[in-house]
Design a protein around this nucleic acid. Structure first.
Lengths: 215, 215
DNA sequence: ACCTGAACACCGTTCAAGT
DNA sequence: ACCTGAACACCGTTCAAGT
């Protein structure tokens, strides 16, 4: 519709606009279709204007990923707190994770697509990613303290749980889930807590010596 | 190394050579660094020779993914059978999955990197991917029949398990695992079977919040 | 500071032409 | 059938130059 050409400099927050436009493009056509030139021209800006705000293309993608981790962390913390922690909060957190991925697939794909390999030392991305993971670790601490979860090494347990929701999230995004996502969330939560072996009527589990070998 | 220029046509199986060279490049420099021109020139072949064997770049990647799924399926079936099925076979299968991903990260990344979106209808890729998944479903059928696993909907259960090993595999490939991969495999298998809730059925509240992981 | 056009060294893909 | 070089329409990135 013949967007009027701006001969003035880009007014507001170009950095933010570039980020949004990149996310929008990835959402619509995939990350491989993202070109800096098109992002610029969509915004009525020169194709090199972007370099005033991002070092290069991978820096733009790193910014997308960092934003994604920040949004994810907020969702996770919110889900935990609004449900008062505990088993309820844990379930809500898992659901929030998967729903975030489904709601923001382009962010999610960039976050875990390996586009951000080398750029991850001491950057905003690393910080935000670590903070999101920490939100889960904190929840696990609390659940262990309250005797709800096993007293495994918290980091190992967090990794176990994160890997699972990550796998579900990726399948959901890729359209590989055969059941509705809410059903998968429910099933996953239940089986994650209780395991997948046949439910014994008498006793719970064989005796795996009360304490696991430390370290 | 001044590879002698071949003025004759490429002798043997160019299709196979292209595939191998592509995998090698992805392994070394990542999938974004893969260029058809370089693959051709590495093989001492014109940069358009590839189009006699693959429709385009995404077809080449689809072939990499299909090969990956075929190799994975073989590994899974072998692990299951060589361990005589049952709980042992199941554990071996999970370990084989993760070890495959670690041993062939470039295949694995292409298999699940979303590079193969649209091209997946009725193709070799879809067939191979389906066959690999079926190997897991077959094992689950057997485990349910033998009363080892809960009688959940097999597909749902297979998806639950696959999502988990997939998540672990991705983390392993991305270098995000904080523990040795074999330890993660052991831990995952144990918790997947038995769940993550506190094992104690009797009351017993001994825990005075023992040593937390000091990370 | 922030933006610009021109230029460089690349891409994937097509196509008429060779053997 | 299989391979080739030239050509087309793109890229990311750099840089001297504008305001």
């Amino acid at each position: 519709m013949a967007k009027k050409r701006q001969h003035r400099y880009h007014h507001g927050d170009l950095s933010r606009a570039l980020l949004q436009e990149a996310v929008h493009t990835i959402q619509k056509d995939g990350v491989d279709a993202l070109t800096l030139r098109q992002v610029g021209s969509r915004l009525g800006v020169s194709r090199t204007a972007l370099y005033r705000h991002f070092a290069d293309k991978s820096a733009l993608l790193a910014a997308v990923a960092a934003e994604g981790f920040r949004m994810l962390r907020v969702q996770l913390e919110q889900a935990w707190q609004e449900n008062g922690g505990g088993t309820e909060g844990f379930a809500a957190m898992g659901a929030a994770y998967i729903r975030f991925a489904v709601a923001h697939p382009s962010h999610y794909r960039v976050m875990f697509g390996g586009y951000v390999r080398g750029a991850a030392q001491g950057t905003e991305l690393e910080r935000e990613g670590g903070a999101a993971f920490q939100a889960l670790v904190d929840a696990i601490f609390a659940l262990q303290r309250d005797g709800i979860l096993r007293k495994d090494h918290p980091l190992e347990l967090a990794q176990y749980i994160w890997a699972h929701v990550h796998g579900i999230a990726m399948f959901a995004i890729d359209g590989l889930l055969r059941q509705p996502v809410d059903e998968v969330i429910r099933f996953s939560h239940e089986r994650m807590l209780g395991g997948i072996v046949t439910a014994k009527t008498s006793d719970q589990r064989p005796a795996t010596s009360d304490q696991r070998g430390v370290e």
